[in-house]
């Protein structure tokens, strides 16, 4: 009876899958190194003023990324402001309200929004969204709602603007927020709903007072995930934001985001310092999205693993 017999295959297999698994952390480390190395000359030259100065003058060799950082934050904020109620509304609709036959198709359509390439959003943005904002939405905001006198909607409205970027980012972030929200809503146990209904709550009261609070941190995670998407979105924003490195209070003025700044100036960057400055913008973007994503994942995971006592 021979019971001895070695299985070298198993050792090779374990080594192989471990190696593949290690590619993931290795990739993140390599990305950090690549960006750090490429960005170092600019950080060394500009110091802290790189993120505080708002002067981005390529000819003068002055690189202050504040306008791009400001633009990234403002456009993403507009996006979340517009997308969150819609996305949460859709998620509630899909998980609690819609008749069965409507759920699949609507969910599919919303998911498709995430499948549309960024550059196609940009194309649509240039030729339809921007003209529509200029000809219909801006006059409505100014003349009908009389918002023209507020700084937010003052100044000339050429078309490409912070507002256009915010709107397109809202459309692009929406499917991510709603997908996560729907997932966490579906994870809320039946008993929570039954308990609320048994107390005499209406359907909406059940959703608002029992389901949403239970799923709250997961929903916030989804919103932050959407924020991560919006912060790093490049092509569509580059095509509609106007690409001007200035900080303006008006949402109708052109602006810049970090990602669009890099994409827009990369091909024309000839000096090493300019290239390095663009990479330094990438480093700031990388750091911000890394933190935002880590927070979002942590929040979503906490819900997925159930409430802890």
């Amino acid at each position: 009876m021979i019971l001895a017999g070695v299985a070298p295959g198993d050792r090779v297999y374990q080594l192989a899958i471990t190696a593949f698994a290690l590619v993931v952390p290795a990739l993140l480390v390599l990305i950090a190194i690549a960006i750090g190395v490429a960005a170092w000359p600019a950080f060394a030259t500009a110091g802290l003023s790189f993120i505080t100065s708002s002067e981005w003058n390529v000819q003068a060799g002055k690189f202050g990324a504040a306008p791009a950082i400001y633009g990234t934050l403002v456009s993403s904020f507009i996006a979340l402001l517009l997308a969150t109620p819609l996305a949460v509304g859709v998620a509630i609709f899909l998980s609690e309200i819609a008749p069965k036959w409507l759920r699949q198709p609507v969910a599919f359509l919303v998911d498709l929004l995430a499948a549309i390439p960024s550059v196609v959003y940009g194309l649509w943005g240039i030729f339809f969204l921007v003209p529509m904002l200029r000809e219909h939405v801006v006059p409505f905001l100014r003349d009908t709602l009389h918002l023209g006198s507020t700084p937010l909607f003052s100044g000339p409205a050429y078309g490409p603007s912070m507002l256009a970027a915010g709107v397109i980012l809202a459309i692009m972030a929406l499917p991510y927020i709603s997908a996560v929200t729907r997932e966490v809503l579906l994870a809320v146990p039946r008993s929570q709903r039954d308990a609320a209904l048994a107390l005499g709550a209406t359907k909406w009261e059940m959703i608002w007072d029992a389901v949403i609070p239970y799923a709250r941190s997961g929903i916030i995670g989804g919103i932050i995930l959407g924020l991560g998407r919006a912060l790093g979105e490049t092509m569509a924003v580059t095509m509609v934001i106007g690409n001007r490195p200035e900080i303006s209070a008006s949402l109708l003025a052109p602006g810049y985001t970090m990602a669009s700044l890099i994409a827009n100036e990369f091909t024309e960057a000839t000096s090493d310092l300019h290239l390095s400055a663009l990479m330094a913008v990438g480093a700031v973007l990388f750091t911000i999205t890394l933190i935002v994503n880590a927070i979002a994942r942590w929040l979503v995971w906490r819900v997925a693993s159930g409430p802890r006592s």
Partner: peptide, 9 residues
Amino acid sequence: APGADPIAV
């Protein structure tokens, strides 16, 4: 036994 391979077993 230490030399026995569970797969063979």
